[in-house]
Design a protein around this nucleic acid. Structure first.
Lengths: 280, 280
DNA sequence: AAACATAGTTCCAAATAGTGGAACAGGATC
DNA sequence: GATCCTGTTCCACTATTTGGAACTATGTTT
């Protein structure tokens, strides 16, 4: 998902003036690091293994530079170079991520509450955080345990078509929402996906008053959810919870019934978080 | 685990005198990237949130430089800076990793066979790959589904005290094993952990002849496993499978009985892998 | 078998991007 | 209000990255 969402997200500052015009337009300058990470992203996102010259073509950099950069990335374990000359994501990334996951304080605090919510509803429960214009899932408790868990953890989905995403937007200051919505690229994942800023903004206003968000098959056909945002004191939105179910099991009445437990789970997490974040 | 394995690999060097002698010995020079990744590692591995000056102390770099580096890492999403001034691993890492995981061809090929092995034995099945002197777990199928899966995926454990690790060593050329064993730092995770090169080398020789490896409470007290290596044509060790169980359920006879299904799972994965890797 | 592509690697002068000392700006604490 | 401790910005110096070109290795065509 969100194949294109992730490209330049960070800053953006028009260093306009005159000379170094177009480069500065889209992305903040993180120098060497930025270029290296862009390569990692390229390799990670590719849907087939890339060889040196594939990457050369995709980036059009001078060969010497590209070669050195890739060598560095391989040495650092961020990329793997197979003997057949194809590059793949390195195992060190997995290792970093497992630490990142284990460390994430909002997730840790939320965990027991997610479990409880799962017990209560018997459906799949998600926990996700906001990164740029995507929701990244940090946790997933399946209703039936046959499906693989990690298949979702770490995945990114756009804000505008997920319950947690819209819940997240509803907690942000208006200015930031405006700015974000303006730069969104809407993609019709399903016939029900919201495709224009106006509809989205209207929905966000509704979510602000009711306190939770629905996703009625807007991202995946046949999948609905109810989601609530979680905010921490002086830190704003730190994550969202949702209960997800196939549409036939999640009709209007049912979805509405789930809203209360979802909201109270979110509230409890907020409360625990306030305690967890207090020390130091 | 392996808390100390990763520390300075990139940075650190006494630039004092004149010759750049000793520096080159321990780590390849990946320049700016290496320093940046070392910071990510530092933040990821810390067991408590680090603030700017914590990192400053731990790295003793000039403040200006450190500050810029951290800023870049945050801009790239590899680190997160909370409003309270503490750094944490960034969500982008999770996102990269989920792609790395989904992409990994050995894992994809192995998956159905792991499932079968799990059905057959009723115990936990692992799939792991080699990175440096650690085994990184790519997959874990629990016997009982109550325990969380991702709690293990991406985790690193040393080669010398895990079944998959020792199985991996048994497939490497002697020279490489020697070199690796010589630089290993043995740590007594349990009373049964192998602690010296000689014992390890002897065990590896045994594993070479029998084709599979045991771990009898060498990493975690009360936990045993049987593991077999998986090799691909011209690519050597690409991963290992293991069946893991609590010691009381995994007595000698039982462990020995599991060896056959583990070996045949490994063989089947190797066969499938040969097909999967053939095209292109 | 020689000539020709194609893919990957190494080299080095030139310029850019990172370095690190020092000065600056809040916030606590005394 | 002075002092400490934290985090941020600035800028001359220099080390690192750059990118063109030359080189090697492998496989393909004439």
């Amino acid at each position: 998902m969100t194949k294109r969402t992730m490209l330049h997200d960070a800053t953006e500052e028009t260093r306009d003036q005159s000379q170094p015009a177009d480069r500065a337009l889209l992305s903040a300058d993180t120098g060497t690091l930025g270029k290296a990470i862009a390569l990692v992203e390229l390799v990670c996102c590719a849907d087939q293994p890339l060889r040196f010259s594939d990457i050369l073509r995709l980036t059009d950099q001078p060969r010497g530079s590209l070669h050195r950069q890739l060598k560095h990335l391989v040495l650092e374990g961020l990329l793997d170079l197979s003997p057949d000359g194809t590059y793949a994501a390195g195992l060190r990334l997995l290792n970093f991520a497992s630490r990142a996951w284990a460390q994430n304080s909002a997730r840790k605090v939320a965990e027991p509450h997610l479990r409880r919510l799962q017990d209560l509803t018997g459906e799949t429960v998600h926990f996700g955080a906001l990164r740029g214009a995507d929701i990244i899932y940090l946790d997933k408790l399946e209703s039936r345990q046959t499906v693989r868990m990690h298949s979702q953890v770490g995945n990114a989905s756009p804000v505008y078509c997920t319950g947690i995403g819209k819940a997240a937007l509803s907690t942000l200051e208006d200015a930031r929402v405006q700015q974000m919505v303006r730069t969104l690229q809407f993609f019709p994942f399903t016939p029900k996906t919201i495709l224009d800023p106006e509809t989205l903004l209207a929905e966000i206003r509704a979510i602000r008053t009711q306190g939770f968000a629905y996703d009625r098959e807007e991202h995946q056909p046949g999948i609905c959810c109810v989601a609530a945002p979680i905010c921490a004191v002086s830190r704003g939105f730190v994550g969202g919870v949702s209960v997800t179910a196939p549409a036939f099991r999640a009709q209007e009445a049912q979805l509405r019934d789930w809203a209360r437990p979802v909201l109270s789970a979110a509230a409890r997490i907020e409360a625990d978080l306030a305690v967890a974040l207090a020390p130091r």
